[in-house]
Design a binder for these strands. Structure first.
Lengths: 215, 215
DNA sequence: GGTGCTATCTTGACACTGTCTAGTCAATGG
DNA sequence: CCATTGACTAGACAGTGTCAAGATAGCACC
């Protein structure tokens, strides 16, 4: 699997080795693995410590509380999402195709790492006011914003990019949200995970038609 | 506040009084109140029992586990949502206006009862396979479906109502999801709760343009 | 080289959680 | 009237997050 734990929140010196070597990063990795396996609900600070081979109170020293550690994991999740989105559109010029690929990348990440995506939007257990986390979120959003700017230029100079951005993001996140947990929207499982991509394509067509200038 | 606890899951006789009178309903009410105050995260089975004035193991007898009780609360939430959506469009003929009102109703509920809405889509703590819960979800969705059928007739006979339904629901739920927890999408709080209605209006315009038949 | 000093981590405790088991007690059916 | 069943209580168990106090290692400084 892709390497998750990438970044830290604020402290600068990651390689300094005291007792453990690099406990902070090790904890993030263990936590990410645990979130990946059991989702945010199955997460436990003590279990993370156990996996990292340290005592149960060790994480508190680095992250303050559970929220701190989860925030770090969520930040790494956003970084991965940004990376995936960026890679999906590199070299692609057509705005419509870019939008489609962004959507598919988003859905792809949410399918491969449902635990992380679920975590990222849980404000009750993740500190959304954290500086680094907010920056990571903005970075991902900027990727979409850029493409929407291209849509505006190509399709409709009057397009409200801000509104469109929120609209697209909300649509995709809503789809992920509703289908990831097999919500009441698709009680018959008609929307299986492998159909999500196709669904996204349909969404994009509808969105683009909505964005187009009316003749 | 509106009375939440409305329905039970499967048992038929609600008014039968044994020791307590109607513990099942009392527990749902207490649980709903607790969810309303502290959200799904702050929920505790023991706290609910405490508020209802019974022992900590009493709820298990009626609901099996925490999940069972939360599922009942979530079902009541959906019933309330359905009611709100239905009331919002009664007597309104114009499809566009209906869609707009449905969206505003949805957002209105999510603002007034954020805890419930957050709960309803948490598949980890709510049993989405529960029969009654699924039925409640479908009922709400049917309300949207009906209006979209009207949109199809009025705007575009080729409209894929199924796709459009998922699209609309995902968009609105995504918006609620992203802004209710003040996600990274609006780190500057530019999307305050009172702006959500206006945002929904913008969404609806974009959606309708997407649904329209191209000339 | 020795002496603080601070960051790192451990150990133990506390209050709390959900669930399981056994027991109590009321209400109903025969 | 009595037995059975449903409703609920009381206690225990394993697990949780967080706090307080202690141990230990690395570093700066004299």
């Amino acid at each position: 699997m892709t390497r998750w734990g990438i970044a830290t929140t604020s402290s600068a010196n990651p390689a300094r080795s005291y007792h453990h070597g690099d406990l902070r990063q090790a904890l993030i990795d263990s936590a990410a693995q645990l979130v990946h396996e059991k989702g945010p609900a199955g997460f436990s600070l003590r279990e993370v410590a156990r996996r990292a081979g340290v005592s149960h109170a060790a994480p508190a020293h680095h992250f303050g509380s559970t929220k701190g550690l989860l925030t770090a994991v969520a930040s790494a999740g956003f970084e991965h999402l940004t990376e995936a989105m960026r890679a999906a559109v590199v070299g692609v010029e057509d705005p419509a195709e870019r939008l489609r690929r962004l959507g598919r990348a988003y859905v792809g990440v949410s399918i491969r790492f449902p635990g992380h995506v679920a975590l990222m939007f849980r404000s009750d257990i993740v500190d959304h006011d954290d500086e680094f986390f907010a920056a990571c979120g903005l970075e991902a959003y900027a990727e979409l914003d850029q493409t929407l700017e291209m849509v505006r230029e190509a399709y409709n100079p009057d397009l409200d990019v801000q509104l469109a951005g929120k609209f697209v993001w909300a649509s995709v996140q809503g789809l992920v949200d509703l289908s990831a947990d097999f919500g009441p929207l698709d009680e018959k499982r008609e929307v299986a995970t492998h159909d999500l991509g196709a669904l996204i394509d349909g969404f994009v067509v509808l969105m683009l038609d909505g964005f187009r200038q009316r003749t």
